[in-house]
Amino acid sequence: MDLPRIFTIRESHHRIHNPMTAHKFAVLGEALRLAPGSRMLDLASGSGEMLCTWARDHGITGTGVDISTVFTEQARARAAELGVSDSVEFVHGDAVGHVADRPVDIAACIGATWIGNGVAGTVELLDRSLRPGGLMLIGEPYWRRTPPDEQTARDSHATAISDFAPLPELIDTFQQLGYDVVEMVLADQDSWDRYAAAQWLSMRRWLDRNPHDELAPRVREELTTEPARYAASTREYLGWGVFALMKR
């Protein structure tokens, strides 16, 4: 049980595996008015940057669950680096169907709503771990601009235009599910650049070290085509944000 190697090749030097930045997560943590001692569950927690920095800055505790062995080890190392290993733990496991052993104050899935087969299923899954009155955090793409055709949508990492909605429609989806949207912090093009462009140097360094690896042709193809594709499509059309929800 693990992520395919291509993901860890692309993002081996990422602390954040989505188009948020450390500054944006800090803004979100402040905006949520996190109380010391609050307990958090972070499903698909990646390298643990959000949970670790919020433990350091706001005194929260919590558990992160992620399917990647590489990212889970990076999360544990980051917790040790920031001196919060006694406050947070990181579990290598499948976030699909994971429910906390007791209700948490904050339940999050940042950028991996595939664990619930979409937004509605992920909201339902997180709700099973959340105490009444708790905060739910969902990280999800939306269309900043609707692509002009299906090929542009595919070039923006969708399978079809219908995969994502414009921002007002995404917010309406949360409301239709019975939740108030109480905060949001959105990625911008600069933070998209830091997420996407940082992959290119990681891929090039990996290729230089591993020219005969079985994945080398795929990595070479991505490195050759990805920068122009990203600049023309993802950067222009795809938005991304973290939305804080409270059940009505």
Rank of each mutant, 00 (worst) to 15 (best):
P166Q: 12
L130M: 06
A75F: 02
D105T: 00
G116S: 03
A165D: 07
G133D: 10
G83P: 05
S129Y: 05
G134A: 09
P147C: 13
G97W: 03
T72H: 02
A112N: 04
D86G: 00
S162N: 12
D94P: 13
G134R: 02
V70L: 14
A75N: 01
R145I: 09
W143H: 11
L135C: 13
N117E: 09
T113G: 10
A95M: 10
E124M: 08
A80I: 05
V104G: 06
C109R: 13
I171M: 05
D94K: 14
T159N: 15
F174D: 07
S87F: 09
Q175F: 01
G118V: 12
R102L: 13
R76I: 02
P141T: 15
D101N: 07
P147S: 12
W114R: 15
D101K: 07
T146E: 15
H98G: 11
V84S: 12
L126E: 06
E150L: 07
W114L: 10
D66I: 13
V84Q: 04
I67D: 09
T113D: 05
L125Q: 15
W143A: 11
D172S: 12
D105F: 06
E89T: 12
E81V: 00
H98K: 08
G111R: 10
V96S: 06
L135I: 10
F90W: 01
A165V: 04
H92A: 08
F71Q: 09
D155L: 12
E140H: 04
V91F: 00
D163M: 05
Q176R: 14
P168S: 08
Q151T: 06
D149H: 11
D172N: 10
A120E: 14
V84G: 06
R145V: 09
I106H: 03
L126Q: 12
Q74V: 01
T122E: 04
A77C: 08
P132L: 01
G64T: 06
A77L: 07
L177E: 05
A79T: 10
I161E: 08
E169T: 04
A153R: 00
Q176D: 15
V88D: 09
T63G: 08
P141W: 10
T113M: 01
W143S: 06
W143Q: 14
D101R: 12
A108C: 07
T159M: 12
L177S: 14
D127E: 15
A112W: 07
D163Y: 03
T122H: 08
L177F: 02
A75Y: 02
A120M: 07
W143L: 12
S87H: 13
Q176F: 04
L170I: 06
G133W: 02
A77V: 02
A77W: 04
Y142R: 08
S85F: 09
Q175R: 14
D163V: 02
I171C: 11
G133K: 03
T113P: 02
L167Y: 05
A112P: 00
T113V: 15
L167T: 05
S129I: 11
T113I: 02
V70H: 09
T152R: 08
E81P: 00
D94A: 07
A108D: 01
A158E: 11
T69K: 04
D94G: 11
L135R: 15
L82I: 07
V96L: 06
S85V: 03
G139I: 02
